[in-house]
Amino acid sequence: MNQEIDIQDRPKYINPYFGGVLLGLVLLITFYITGRGLGASGAVKSAVVTTVDKVAPDHAEQNTYMKAFITDDHSPMFNWLVFESFGIFIGGLLSGALFGRIKKLRIEKSPNITNKTRLFAAGIGGILFGIGSQFGRGCSSGAALSGTASSSFGGLLVMLLMFGTGYVVAYFFRKLWI
């Protein structure tokens, strides 16, 4: 243990178990109030559909996947998950302000790689996550966290395989992080 070293510079995070219990309670309350769990990637999906619908409405109408999310009475952005995701952003802002983590724009990376590499990896990771979350019917919060909490078999499957794959491929990308 090296907690004596640079104790000042250490981030002021809350105890992970504390965070876990809080997150579990938030999830429980979400289930109690709305009857379903949390989610995050659905908001981006709504954004995609809205953008395509704005830029090329005909194209969106023809697309069998997007068509399902377009209705005449309101915009796809008028969606539970969009509001929730906006809440996530505000929550992050509040916490960041409280613990003094809001600073100027920055890139977080391993000292061994360039900014460019990091951003490239982040972009590719995002693309993969976007595609994967559609196949998996949800991302880590929607499928893995909420799914498993509601004892969904699919949720458990996604969680195990996602982390499992992570461990398998982690070795090849170790430079990015260590």
Partner: peptide, 19 residues
């Protein structure tokens, strides 16, 4: 162990509320 993991008192309190 991280410095922020040394004090699980708050965790205990929330857990006890849950219980």
């Amino acid at each position: 162990m991280h410095v922020h993991e040394l004090n699980p008192k708050k965790t205990m309190v929330t857990m006890i509320i849950f219980v």
